[in-house]
Design a protein around this nucleic acid. Sequence first.
DNA 1: ACCTGAACACCGTTCAAGT
DNA 2: ACCTGAACACCGTTCAAGT
Lengths: 179, 179
Amino acid sequence: MVRADSARNRQSILDAAGTLLASHGDAVGMDEIAATAGVAVGTLYRHFPTKTDLIAAAVAGLTERLVADVRAAADRVDSGADPVAELRGLLEWLIRKPAADKAIKAAAAGLAADALQEMESRGFAELDRITVAAHARGLLRPDITTTDFALIAATAPDDSLPEAARDRWIELALRSVVA
Amino acid sequence: MVRADSARNRQSILDAAGTLLASHGDAVGMDEIAATAGVAVGTLYRHFPTKTDLIAAAVAGLTERLVADVRAAADRVDSGADPVAELRGLLEWLIRKPAADKAIKAAAAGLAADALQEMESRGFAELDRITVAAHARGLLRPDITTTDFALIAATAPDDSLPEAARDRWIELALRSVVA
DNA sequence: ACCTGAACACCGTTCAAGT
DNA sequence: ACCTGAACACCGTTCAAGT
């Protein structure tokens, strides 16, 4: 049984971390996060033994949303939507996420691999639904797999590139998979 | 006229930084680099006002080699080599560089954009030679430009991905440009 | 002009004391 | 059990003194 104030503190810390990391990226200090959350640093460290752990927890929310979006896209495909258009939409989402999430993503640079693994294990099945549907309609090159899409997603550029370059990247990426 | 010892110090610092960054990445402290170079920290800061500047200087060497490699590939194309094979070779080089260089590359994470710009301004012309030759032989899709290759190079994954994934990435990347 | 290295500032992390 | 916040450790950077 967790104490009510402990649970509340944990949530306050996550909220504060999410907000501050989003606006200032990696640069926020643990002291500042603790102050914003209304707790002492020691309390912060009781919940998250290291700054990396805290960032990982804050990024987890991002992953949730990604998985939810992939599922929504898969649902639309089941309802007759164009699989390739949905894949394009997902890539656009991945690249164009609001600046707030970008900052978190940047802050989590070192965690990219972990996050991808997390996404794979939980969102892979959803992505696979789209791949299967697309193949059933003969829209993809025969050898393209769901893993290929994960690979493409993993190498997606961030918004440090100019808009035109990002659009072009999506075109080239889709070109490598469509029939 | 620079004092001989000053020039010597600068070189010692660059050598030490190159070695230490290569073996330990970003983790090396300025004190350690200074000690290895046989100078005081203050001297290090006289030559490179910030750690970022020092890393940038160390990375410059990498860029030189990249440009040289692109030029060599372009020369081989002029001598009749297959342009697509040369492009594949360049991508492989980019992904598979020795671990030592990778560490420097990782240490220079924040400088990626600058390095790319540097490469573009100096290596773009070399890369363009390959693109032109490839188009002349009808090997590329008509709309593919040299900028597309730079874009692909910029999004190349590093060796955090398993070998098979890196090979597959190269396949997909080439697929998006070949006719 | 350039070099030295002690000192400063900042920030992630710990821990003895409190409730 | 959990919270507090002063203290520690580490590292990038500065600067007064030396040559």
